[in-house]
Design a binder for these strands. Structure first.
Length: 215
DNA sequence: CGAATTTGACCAGCGC
DNA sequence: GCGCTGGTCAAATTCG
C-alpha cells in the first residue's frame, strides 16, 4: 500500500506544481498587474428564472479565467486572516487528498475575488491558498484601523506577507534537511515557480499597500 | 434577527 | 458517449 501511496503523492505533487506554475505563468505575462478596469458591472440578469443554472452562462466562449495566485503557508488554521472578510460558499473533497478544499468569496459587495483553501496532503501543516481576481475595494482592516495603520506599516502586514516568508522558510528548511521528501515537494514548488516579487503581489491584492506603505 | 457556515445537489469540462 | 471531478448554488442550520 505504501508504494502506491508514494506514487500517488508524487503525482499529487506534480499536479499541484503544474497548477501553480500555470498560475504564475499567467501572472508573469502581466495579466495580474493589468487586470484592473475589466468592467464587469451591471450584468443585468433580468432572467432570474434560471438563477440556479446561471453559472453555465455563455456557451460559446470558455469561461474566462481570472488571474490567480497560489501560495503555500505553514499554518495550523485553514482560514488565514488577510485583512479582508470572506464568506465560505462551498467545500469539496478533493481527489488525492484526505483534506477538503474550501471555497471563499469576498463579502464586500461587487468584489469578485474568490479564494480556495486546501491543506497539503503531503504536509498537513501546510495550507495552499489560491486567490482569484482582484479586490475592487480597499482592505476593510485598513479602513477600520484608520490612518495610523498606514503610518505604521508593520501593523498592517497581512498574513499574505507571512505566507511568503513562511514559504521561504520552507525552502530554507529543505536545504538544511534534504532527506525529507515532503519539504522537498514544497521547495520544488517554490523553486520552479520563481514567485514574483512579494511587493508586486501585495500591490495586486492590497492596493493600499502600494499607496502608502512602500518607500 | 441577521450574518455566516454547512451540506447536498447540480452543472460544465475533461479524459478515456 | 460516459463517468469523474471541480466549482457553484441555495436551503437549512448554527452562531453572535
Amino acid at each position: 500500500m505504501e508504494g502506491a501511496g508514494e506514487e500517488e503523492s508524487a503525482k499529487y505533487c506534480k499536479d499541484v506544481k503544474e497548477e501553480l506554475r500555470e498560475e504564475v505563468e499567467e501572472a508573469k505575462r502581466g495579466t495580474m498587474l493589468n487586470m484592473v478596469g475589466e468592467g464587469g458591472e451591471a450584468k443585468q440578469d433580468d432572467d432570474d428564472k434560471h438563477k440556479k443554472l446561471n453559472k453555465a452562462k455563455k456557451k460559446g466562449e470558455k469561461r474566462q479565467r481570472e488571474p490567480r495566485f497560489a501560495f503555500m503557508t505553514k499554518s495550523e488554521v485553514d482560514h488565514l486572516e488577510d485583512g479582508y472578510r470572506w464568506r465560505k460558499y462551498g467545500q469539496k473533497a478533493v481527489k488525492n487528498s484526505p483534506y477538503p478544499r474550501s471555497y471563499y468569496r469576498c463579502t464586500t459587495q461587487r468584489c469578485p475575488v474568490k479564494k480556495r483553501v486546501e491543506r497539503s496532503y503531503q504536509d498537513p501543516s501546510v495550507v495552499i491558498t489560491t486567490y482569484e481576481g482582484q479586490h475592487t475595494h480597499v482592505c476593510p482592516a485598513n479602513v477600520r484601523a484608520g490612518s495610523h495603520m498606514l503610518a505604521d506599516p508593520s501593523t498592517m502586514v497581512p498574513s499574505i506577507m507571512h505566507s511568503d516568508m513562511l514559504l521561504h522558510q520552507l525552502v530554507h528548511n529543505n536545504t538544511n534537511n534534504k532527506s525529507s521528501p515532503n519539504s522537498g515537494c514544497s521547495a520544488l514548488l517554490h523553486n520552479q515557480l520563481q514567485l514574483p516579487d512579494p511587493y508586486d503581489l501585495l500591490q495586486c491584492f492590497i492596493p493600499s499597500f502600494a499607496n502608502g506603505s512602500q518607500p
